[in-house]
Computed example of a mutant assay.
Amino acid sequence: MYTSRPSDPKTSTRQRDAERTRAALISAAQTLFSTRGFANTGVREVAELAGVNSSLVNRYFGSKQGLYRETLEQVLDIIPMLQGDRRRFGENVVSIFLGVQDAPGPLMMLILSAADPEAHATSVELLHKKAIEPLARWLGPPDAEGRAARLNILWSGFLMSWRLLPLPQLAEVRHSSTRRWLEAAIQAIVDEGES
């Protein structure tokens, strides 16, 4: 008969420390990759911001590229946006966009990855895997992937014009006709499958 041994408290503490260290590195990486870009961020800077030794980046992620992949994989998640009422999707998405503070996000990571071919390839791959594919499944036919791509274009364009290259006309977007237009444009793409 097999009996399990009591768990070693030291092992459990090490696992929690490893989880905290990984989380701290990912948080630091998100901040730096989305403000400085992949090419302008060093492993030492990420580790310093996380408050850990830089050798732990390689230990937990294998490389800076591995850290980038893991970070983007965690922050690029469209699934929560797909949980609400389908008939109010446009309103819900715009509310999410407008409710996000100036925290570093996946869009900046994606854009700023373009300077490094390997990071850019990872960004394109994960954008498709973590955003376009789940959105296309949720949208359903007809032309699910095309509609998902059009939504991505609309969102990226809006977020770039509002956050990265701010247009003065979008300063009051929370209470403007632009908000209503964006909600309607998003909803129209979603509703193409209903007709």
Rank of each mutant, 00 (worst) to 15 (best):
M1T: 11
T3E: 12
S4K: 14
P6E: 08
T13S: 11
R14L: 03
R14Q: 08
D17Y: 09
D17N: 07
E19A: 11
E19D: 05
R20E: 05
T21C: 01
A23K: 11
A23I: 02
A24L: 02
L25Y: 02
L25F: 13
T31L: 11
F33Q: 00
R36G: 00
R36N: 15
A39Y: 06
N40Q: 13
N40R: 13
G42M: 04
G42A: 08
V43L: 10
V43H: 13
R44A: 15
R44V: 14
E45A: 11
V46L: 08
E48G: 10
A50T: 04
N53K: 10
V57W: 02
R59S: 04
Q65D: 08
Q65V: 11
Q65Y: 15
Q65L: 15
G66D: 03
Y68Q: 04
E70I: 01
T71F: 05
L72P: 07
E73P: 00
Q74V: 01
V75Y: 06
I79K: 15
Q83A: 10
G84W: 05
G84L: 02
D85G: 13
D85H: 06
R86E: 06
R88P: 01
V94D: 06
S95M: 07
S95Q: 14
S95N: 15
I96Q: 06
I96V: 13
F97S: 02
G99A: 09
D102M: 09
A103T: 13
A103C: 05
P104F: 09
P104E: 01
G105S: 04
P106R: 00
P106L: 01
L107C: 02
L107N: 11
M108W: 14
M108Y: 08
L110A: 07
L110Y: 05
I111W: 08
L112Q: 09
A114Q: 13
A119E: 02
A119D: 07
A119P: 09
T122R: 10
T122L: 12
E125W: 09
A131C: 14
A131P: 00
A131V: 14
R137G: 04
G140S: 08
P142S: 07
D143Q: 11
D143E: 11
A148L: 03
A149D: 05
R150L: 13
L151I: 14
L151K: 05
L154Q: 00
L154H: 04
W155L: 04
G157R: 02
G157Y: 07
F158D: 01
L159S: 14
M160F: 09
W162C: 00
L164G: 08
L164R: 12
L165W: 05
L165S: 09
P166T: 03
L167C: 04
L170C: 01
L170N: 05
L170H: 07
R174P: 01
S177K: 14
S177F: 06
T178S: 12
T178W: 13
T178V: 13
W181T: 01
L182F: 10
E183M: 08
E183P: 13
A185K: 10
A185E: 05
V190R: 10
G193F: 08
G193N: 05
